[in-house]
Write a protein that binds this DNA or RNA. Structure first.
Lengths: 324, 324
DNA sequence: GAAACAGATGAATGCGCTTTCAACGCGATG
DNA sequence: CATCGCGTTGAAAGCGCATTCATCTGTTTC
């Protein structure tokens, strides 16, 4: 493997000049720069990132911590981070915490010691711990807000309001909210908006695991409330709910309407197509990474980014059935 | 940030001993080892990976290259790689090529220069280029086989056979195969098994994009063949097919049966539940990473891993309708 | 024409760690 | 009792690069 020294010798310059020619082209005369670049290509030179990192104090890596790579929502965020990081010549070190909050802190610490910045997607880590991490290095939160820390979140309160208004316009007056994990920031955030629309009563059906199975379990509870429409913490739950409703012979949307959150791919594969609040996850990955870079260069400007969400009305909601 | 030197001083030993106490505990006396470990914890010491990498020649990173992080199949592989890598104290550097074959080579090269090994998931990179990459460093292929290179693949030929036999047992005699990208290794591999079951005629409906939309487009073509069952390259396509069939008033499985490949989550969210060939993607990630480690230590034993697949019979297949 | 200067260059230093290598102390061996 | 050998230790070298600093060249200014 060719080193910078080899390139320098081949180009007939000193290692210092070779280094500059490749990383600060303007500070080298045109002729030498070309010689160096040509030599580098000829030798197939690939810079040793570890050496660069050690010498410059910049690892060239961005860390990404998330609960579950296989969850389509987090995967979408990862994709966004990845794309944006490559744009700024950074690689992404990804760590899946496997929904294990205990391992999380150790993972974050280890990662943080070896990256230029961290994108942290941890719905459940205690605020205090997050603050601790933020003190240890540049950090941007995704889908979670902590006072005084940079974050990219979604205006899901508005999403809840949009969904509620949509349902009210369809004549629904009693709605069941099928929540996600209590410890999750975004669930708390959404719950707060539950009372934002007049003329609608919302019954809270409690906390459920944010996966298909969680929805299956929640469906019966929601049905018991007598609500004519169900608002779900996320699409996976909504899909689980619809699955169970079908099994019980309850028709969607004829008998009850269902609204999800996230707009994962499957929402447009199922029948009926799921009405859901679309969340720009990939864009959040972009924004977070961009923010991280600014953070490192200029420090934080105190602004948190809150991305707009949009209700996508599809087939799983319709006017409340008129009593026979 | 505390360095190893700080720890050594705090423990009253030389840096060399401190280093050994932490990375080769057996070569240090018990008493000193404890002193070092205690000091390291007290100071919150985190090793600098770049320095370790530079000094030891081992980056501690595993590279993972895949076409699309947001694709649930690849995400599952990523999860497997990630979990296994953590087990062997490695971090994962992930690169999403965004289905862009041109960028791919550059990405792989850059990554390969800075990791201990690479898991490459590239259905379409030309064999010749793959060989080139393999020469540049430890490399394990996933879902793709190249002569003389270590790989983890799936026995999808058996999957095709299982599906075909299942369908024949149900009375189907004419089946349409809705293929994936021609350039994809696994599509070629599956196509080869299409003739493996006697008494069944298979019509090839051509290549389609391995996403929902691809299936939507393919459905009409498949219908035109008059086949009573459709075997699809993957679940996304199968879901797209079912979506389009429903729109055209064709009932699944009453009028036609549909079989997918992969068993992505959505396959068990939709109705009818999709009969599909389950592929152990996460396990493939595990295996590939394990293999990579052995590869680095002992060299390649010449064996490629081929993981078994399993037909999951659910609701989208049923006996061929008897003509009225 | 001399002095001041800006730009380009190379020698040398050090980032934090691992890993030789030589030195040391100890019990075992002859 | 001298010798060997093993287990433990520290000094020192060096991994590949960025970067500082002094040097040198060629240009501008008075």
């Amino acid at each position: 493997m060719a080193t910078l020294r080899d390139v320098a010798i081949a180009a007939g310059v000193s290692p210092a000049t070779a280094s500059r020619a490749l990383s600060a082209p303007d500070s080298v005369s045109t002729a030498r720069r070309h010689r160096v670049i040509e030599a580098a290509e000829r030798l197939g030179y690939q810079p040793n990132r570890s050496a660069q990192a050690l010498a410059s104090g910049q690892s060239g890596h961005v860390g990404l911590v998330l609960p579950d790579l296989a969850n389509p929502s987090f995967a979408a965020i990862a994709k966004g981070v990845q794309a944006q990081a490559r744009g700024s010549r950074h690689s992404v070190l990804v760590a899946d915490t496997d929904e294990d909050p205990r391992a999380e802190l150790a993972i974050v610490r280890d990662l943080q010691a070896n990256v230029d910045g961290l994108v942290l997607c941890s719905p459940r880590m205690p605020e205090e711990q997050i603050r601790e991490c933020a003190a240890a290095g540049p950090l941007v939160l995704v889908n979670r807000e902590v006072d005084g820390l940079p974050s990219v979140t979604f205006d899901s309160a508005s999403g809840v309001t949009q969904a509620l208004q949509h349902l009210r316009a369809l004549g629904h007056r009693h709605i069941a909210y099928i929540g996600g994990p209590t410890s999750s920031w975004s669930d708390a955030h959404r719950r707060r908006a539950l009372g934002s629309v007049d003329g609608i009563e919302v019954t809270d059906v409690g906390s459920h695991r944010p996966i298909h199975q969680g929805g299956v379990a929640a469906a019966d509870l929601a049905l018991e409330t007598g609500a004519t429409a169900f608002l779900c913490y996320n699409d996976l739950i909504a899909l689980g709910v619809m699955f169970r409703l079908r099994a019980r012979g309850v028709r969607v949307p004829d008998d009850v309407s269902v609204v999800g959150f996230d707009d994962i791919g499957a929402a447009s594969y199922v029948s009926p197509l799921l009405t859901t609040v679309a969340i720009p996850l990939t864009r959040a990955g972009h924004e977070a990474t961009t923010m991280l870079e600014r953070l490192r260069l200029d420090g934080w400007d105190g602004h948190a980014v809150r991305l707009p969400v949009e209700l996508l009305v599809r087939e799983s909601t319709r006017p409340v059935p008129t009593p026979a």
